[in-house]
Design a protein around this nucleic acid. Structure first.
Lengths: 197, 197
DNA sequence: CCTACCGATCGGTAGG
DNA sequence: CCTACCGATCGGTAGG
């Protein structure tokens, strides 16, 4: 019977390797060696290489969803929701940097069926942001040409953080979130608004 | 002697396949078949699979650099430079969607030496944006907690566009750029600025 | 969890 | 650009 925690160690090593080398460039032998066993032995713990990819990405998706849901459902003002939503987003990335990288960067390597499961959760996450932004506009707090482009900009910026964030760098997740929130809410331009086009 | 344009066709097919399947999951046989020849024949045109990846990413880098340089060097006001810089950025993505995807998503698969070449060009591109933003702040046009977080937000958002942009979708590259510019310059919040933290 | 192995496929080459 | 091929390595399995 496999030792307790063995599966977790394998997932941890797989996350690290998938992040560094990418899913396809990581071999079963890489993962098994990093987990302290031979390649054949890995299959006492997993069923396939793709299972590892799915489990990592799915856990990532769940962390994003469960962090954002209470914020969207709260009755804080829209600006405050944006601040908090960015903060938990960055916190999930910072606390799960390897899994988050795999979630954002490698999930397309999943088989059709499993990719659809992850896509649905991505859509759900985007939907929460969409509601948050639409609410801010409805309440007259947000000016937006359209909700979709604002959402795409915010999520692209937030999702891209895994590419440069360093846990031992100068900023905590919350500091990144606050800087992003300030720029997104208030804009780059000083004083009056820019005249637009 | 290879027919003229044969190499270009191979690069085009490789870009398409690298974008769809990823570099490692694309085989020499995939590329050769899509180019209308057998796998061995491909080597009359290329030296290695990695050469294709490098050529695609390097061309992408050059397009971004050569588009942005004249804007940074111009004497337009900072807000206008941001608008134009976003516009050409989106235009490069829209006109080279497959190569841009490879540039943003697959360049890490390059060997150390060649990855360093691309990294240097990425750094150069970021440096141009850094100068642009710093100039805006120096002139008192931009309010920024710091230039770095503003640059990371803007570039993350701009670089992420390849993930959702559809050439036959509802927006042209310029329309995306204008929506992004408006939100980045003016912010999400209506009327007076949000009170911050 | 190891030993021993398998069929498939990989990037690439020699010789024309 | 094709034919024919190579050594290496891949994900995975049987039997213990």
């Amino acid at each position: 019977m496999p030792r307790t925690g063995r599966k977790e160690k394998i997932l941890e090593q797989a996350s690290r390797l998938f992040r560094t080398k990418g899913y396809h460039a990581t071999t079963i032998r890489d993962i098994s060696e990093a987990s302290g066993m031979l390649s054949g032995s890995l299959y006492a713990h997993i069923q396939s290489k793709e299972d590892l990819l799915f489990e990592i990405t799915d856990r990532g998706a769940e962390r994003f969803l469960s962090s954002l849901a209470p914020i969207v459902d709260s009755d804080a003002p829209p600006e405050e929701k944006v601040r908090r939503a960015l903060a938990v987003h960055m916190r999930v990335i910072a606390d799960n940097l390897e899994a988050a990288t795999v979630f954002f960067h490698e999930w397309k390597a999943l088989s059709d069926e499993r990719r659809a499961v992850i896509q649905a959760k991505r859509d759900e996450y985007e939907g929460m942001w969409a509601r948050l932004l639409a609410e801010g506009r409805r309440q007259g707090r947000f000016q937006m040409v359209d909700e979709k482009s604002a959402r795409l900009l915010i999520l692209s910026a937030a999702n891209g953080v895994y590419q440069w964030y360093a846990p031992d760098g100068e900023w905590s997740a919350e500091q990144v979130a606050e800087r992003f929130a300030r720029l997104l809410l208030d804009g780059l331009v000083t004083g009056e608004r820019s005249e637009g086009k």
